[in-house]
Amino acid sequence: MSYVEFLTEFGPRLVDGTITTAQQTILAAAVAILIAVAAGLMRLSHNRLIYGAATVYIEIFRGTSLLVQLYWIFFVLPLFGLTLDKFTAGFMAVGMNLGAYGAELVRGGILSVPKGQWEAALALNMSPAKRMIRIIFPQAILNMLPPWGNLLIELLKGTALVALISVTDLMFEAKQINGSTFLSAQVFGTALIIYYLMARCLITPFMRWLERIMARKLGRI
């Protein structure tokens, strides 16, 4: 079977899988960003309880395996009465895991805003919430965009694990096709290329575009 024949026969399934992978990536990214902002801000709190809660979360999700977390959310949580369908469990696990890494990026980005900006906002009598939302966060975003680009690529690759709880993503389809045809080189080679192209041609340019937009807002271009 030539590679063209292979693609003609199995291409549609790989495309379906790729769409699922893209959906998982987008939803997981949304979860990761929400968690990262929340936990990152909590890590800046002077309240020990709030700071402690975020620290425990980050330590647990950063310090243990994503695969184990995925199995926990899908197989163990139902024992405690919380059942998630496999699609939801998949992106929640990936998002919660990468969100823990993202929290430190958010914290670092906020702390990288010069002290003078905080003081100027204070001298203008802005409330802590307005100061964060209007002055500090917009500047922090620009500082944290490059590492977030890294993290989102990591997240895309992390979604391959959801195949292990039978979410029909790209990796799941590839494994199924391999199981029935044993065309390992073709199928896994194609999956590899698709993952790479998603990262290189979608995520990276998107992040560059965001960086340009934010830099323009800061008047740096």
Binding site: G116, Q117, E119, A120, A123, N125, Q139, K217, G219
Partner: peptide, 16 residues
């Protein structure tokens, strides 16, 4: 604080 205004050595204008 509403009574007081301050200008800084390094301006601290909001760059965005």
């Amino acid at each position: 604080r509403t009574n007081i205004g301050m200008c800084f050595q390094h301006f601290n204008l909001f760059p965005h």
